[in-house]
Design a protein around this nucleic acid. Structure first.
Lengths: 119, 119
DNA sequence: CTGTATCCTAGCTGATACTG
DNA sequence: CAGTATCAGCTAGGATACAG
């Protein structure tokens, strides 16, 4: 918890956060990245199954955007039935820290929410 | 970069990430939190100025949601002209790690983008 | 200063069906 | 299996004006 950053803050920092969120915005993007991250390699239908509630149209669209941002790599496998594999690029892997943090926070948050309901 | 988490991944983790994003969704929420975080205490008009491009309507709305989620605390100061101060709650402070990570990534990302354009 | 209240639209999103 | 196409609804978000 680096407090030194929290002094005479900057627009620069706030913009940086905003920039990151721009790349990761969209209802599903982070979930998709997580899926690929957690499994390392992942196929279209796998992700479709991992991410609860997403439609194939949305998945396709979000994957395309992530690919454009160089966060994931698309590989068409030379198999019988068409298979496409997605992986994080090296650049995409720099998001792992963030993913981990978001996961942790989400887990804790869920407990907090549940705790509140029980009151 | 904890790789151990990235083995036989889980829906649970992916959902956790999604949950976190739910709380932080909206175009401006994270920027607002950052502003408050970086300055510790922050007034409405300050945030309005910090976060580039946001309208007062949006700020008001997002602040309300953040307050509902117990992430920030609203205090009406007893001054002449109406002044309202926002701070992170203890719970909100648990987001600091994430904010820091997002800031770092955003900074690097900007450099990457700029680098690409120069090619 | 700190919001609310309207009005309005781009585009996000889901559902469904279709293609290679 | 991995998408694309189309239609249609919703709503997030912007502009503007007003209020306490």
């Amino acid at each position: 918890m680096t407090d030194d950053v929290c002094q005479k803050g900057h627009k620069k920092e706030i913009m940086a956060v905003h920039d990151t969120m721009d790349v990761l915005s969209g209802k599903w993007k982070i979930s998709i990245i997580s899926s690929i991250c957690y499994y390392n390699k992942r196929r279209f239908s796998d992700i479709l199954n991992d991410v609860n509630g997403i439609s194939n149209k949305m998945l396709s669209k979000e994957l395309k955007e992530l690919e454009m941002n160089k966060l994931i790599k698309r590989t068409v496998l030379d198999t019988q039935s068409v298979t496409v594999q997605y992986q994080l690029t090296e650049y995409g892997k720099t998001l792992q820290t963030i993913i981990n943090d978001l996961t942790d926070w989400g887990m804790k948050h869920r407990k907090v929410i549940i705790g509140e309901k029980e009151k």
